[in-house]
Simulated assay, not measured.
Amino acid sequence: MNHELLPTALDALAKARASLPQQSRQVIDTKSSNTDPVTAADRALERAIRDTIAEQRPNDTFIGEEYGTTDHAAGTTRWIVDPIDGTVNYSYSIPSYAISIAAEVNGQVEVGLVFDVGHNELFQAVRGQGATCNGIPLQASQETELAKALCGTGFGYSAATRKLQAQILHDVIDEIRDIRRFGAAAIDICWTGAGRVDGYFETGLKVWDYAAASLVATEAGARFATDLPGIGDDGLTVAAGSGLFDALADRIVTLYQGLAR
């Protein structure tokens, strides 16, 4: 794969990976709720990624889970960073969490890296050049039947949101093959691109959760949307192989619309 932004993204990822073993899993803060933790490692890794990119590309801007957004001028490159996607898993030493880095140009993600730390797998994509995992090309699932679809999902940090998400799961569980819940959206979406799950759905994701992974999935042949009707202002994200996407998205949207009535 070739792109002028790819070497910078890889350098930033390398710096974060080198830093991670020295970091602490200690929870030092919370965000949206008292079950939404921030560890010392979250902040240290995002700072390492930002500093590495800023050294090479001082005019670029950033949005990240821990340090927010820098001023973004039209036409400039924006980096979208989640230093640890799956912080709860990380804090419990559950090996399902990832470092996610995306480069966006004129509102379109051009380069995406998701490093699954526990499995030592680097998912990589460049727009128009496909997607790989540790250098092996990816291909999304060819499944077309909802009843045979293995689907990933996730849950929010708000108890009220989780209750609604669980109701959707209750209503759809007998219409699909089964559900998997791994606890890191970026990995779930990349695994959709890899065909390890046939589809994925979740409400309330943020751009840093899906920016890099969505490029991996779509470059692998999956379809992806993140602005479907969900819970209030929390849009519904759906990713699936092209033959399954419409059926899965339509069913989950219909269920959420039923909750709203």
Rank of each mutant, 00 (worst) to 15 (best):
A12R: 10
A147Q: 14
D36C: 06
V207H: 13
A140Q: 07
G118H: 07
D250K: 04
I101W: 02
A159V: 14
D71C: 01
T87W: 04
H72V: 12
G68T: 09
N34R: 04
A247M: 06
Q165D: 00
T76Y: 02
P7A: 08
R47N: 13
A16E: 02
D11S: 10
G230T: 10
A212C: 14
F224R: 01
S33R: 08
A16W: 06
E104N: 00
R47S: 15
W79N: 04
L113A: 12
P229Y: 11
V197T: 15
A16H: 03
K31Q: 15
G135L: 09
M1L: 00
A222E: 06
Q257F: 06
T237K: 01
A131E: 14
E66W: 08
Y210H: 11
C133Q: 15
M1I: 02
T161Q: 12
Y67C: 10
Q108K: 13
G154A: 03
T218G: 03
L138Y: 05
G107F: 00
L150K: 09
A16T: 05
R177F: 11
Q139W: 04
L255Q: 15
T132G: 10
S96A: 08
T161W: 00
Q108S: 10
R127I: 11
D174E: 04
P21G: 08
G230C: 13
D250M: 02
A98F: 02
